[in-house]
Design a protein around this nucleic acid. Structure first.
Lengths: 246, 246
DNA sequence: CGAACTGTTGAATATCCTCAATTTCAGTGG
DNA sequence: CCACTGAAATTGAGGATATTCAACAGTTCG
């Protein structure tokens, strides 16, 4: 049985065995979604959140013009759909970019977790704040940098996230997105995304074959990217203590 | 003595008198900042969060190119600097757009609040998720819409936030931002921001005199804006119960 | 009255988009 | 094995939007 990877939490704090267990039993039995399946559509009532166990998904917002903006790429270990927790109707659409495995968590279970452990609420909060910083970075990226800078940032971000998730290798990774989808992440058209990709390729900074991306000059790519690395603070000192007993 | 407005929380849930009191005594004594003062610079160690009591401030990220992106405008009742809670060094700079009054909350006090009331952690979490949705909307706005659409969205967003905060009138409000700063919010240059503003003015959708903005045709402006209104869910059913006693 | 900041506009340029055509490739059915 | 199909990638050409550079006007402040 596939399990929800806990690295996203344990990046920030040491989980007690009890806490790890709470997370392990949080989700309902995992469900498989087909590539291109809609997991939840924006505007639908919010019934719960989702734990990404395997595959790639994304969260997107559709504008009246028909244009789509992908707001977050989701990899195994991510929690999906949580921003809409504070809304009655979902703000974003959750979409399977590849076949994927996802466990649903009804809000009642979230509540049970929260009643059981204040510390888990606080951990959840820390996790969400970290995601918020990531979004702030994206606003700065899209608002104030060129297509080239955006794409370079995209590459190193996805690569480093894959490495942390234990997927991907030192200098290469599989990117199961079409260029149109990459454009939807970066706020660019498909055509301009293609030109940007081809330019980096011609310059020898990257190479591609099918979905495989090879970073031929990671240092140069990093130099193009205008965003700093953010590292979560480990062992947050403002968390409540672990529960008195188990 | 000026007080921290609680509407941001009470928008989502009914605060018990004890909870309202916890928030009221959360901050240290308010401090006044001068217009253009830096409240906290990005990269500095994170020591606490801030409660906005009066005035306007913003949170911004500086890119190596020297360009700045304003990521959030802060009005009275907002909590500033919380995204960096999960980091050791602040991601964003907090900057006073006007003279303002702000109460500092050291992380130790945040921790005390959290240990005292799990429900307050969860409320805080809901608040943060709502902010996250706002950021997602901004990503979609900046990534996929025109200067005109961005500016129209900016106007109705600021106006509605001022109304909720009990500032501003039905069809007008004071906007103490330079056009350069508005450009930093919208991801545009000062020059193009100016042209965009002037265009709406020439078309009779808005009028201006000094910092005063008059919405001459709010419906038309709303029609230009591509983002939907988001309303926080009231009475979130996943919150832990209020503490058994006071 | 001069300095500094903000707003405003014109002209030239750059970046990115739209439209359109063509190529590549994986999957399907004959 | 090969044509056929549809999705995705690629490229050219022309156009739209936004930027850059530059100049100047209006305000505020000392």
């Amino acid at each position: 049985m596939p399990e929800f990877p806990l690295n996203r939490f344990s990046d920030m704090v040491e989980l007690s065995p009890e806490e790890a267990e709470m997370l392990r039993v949080l989700g309902e039995p995992p469900v498989r979604y087909r590539r291109h399946a809609v997991i939840r559509r924006e505007g639908e009532p919010v019934k719960g959140i989702y734990l990404m166990i395997a595959g790639w998904a994304c969260s997107s917002i559709m504008l009246p013009s028909g244009l789509r903006q992908i707001v977050k790429l989701h990899l195994p270990g991510d929690m999906l759909g949580t921003p809409s927790m504070a809304l009655s109707h979902a703000a974003d659409t959750l979409f399977a970019l590849t076949d994927c495995t996802i466990a649903f968590v009804p809000m009642a279970r979230v509540r049970a977790l929260f009643e059981q452990s204040p510390r888990m609420i606080a951990l959840f909060l820390a996790f969400v704040q970290y995601e918020r910083v990531a979004l702030m970075d994206i606003v700065a990226l899209i608002g104030r940098s060129s297509a080239r800078e955006r794409y370079a940032t995209f590459l190193i971000d996805v690569h480093s996230r894959l490495l942390r998730a234990g997927l991907g290798e030192e200098d290469r990774f599989e990117l199961p997105l079409t260029q149109e989808q990459i454009g939807d992440v970066l706020g660019l058209t498909m055509v301009h995304t293609n030109r940007t990709v081809r330019a980096l390729e011609r310059e020898g900074l990257i190479a591609r074959s099918g979905p495989l991306v090879i970073l031929r000059d990671p240092a140069a790519i990093r130099r193009i990217s205008p965003l700093p690395k953010r590292t979560p603070a480990f062992g947050l000192d403002w968390l409540p203590r672990a529960a008195a007993d188990g």
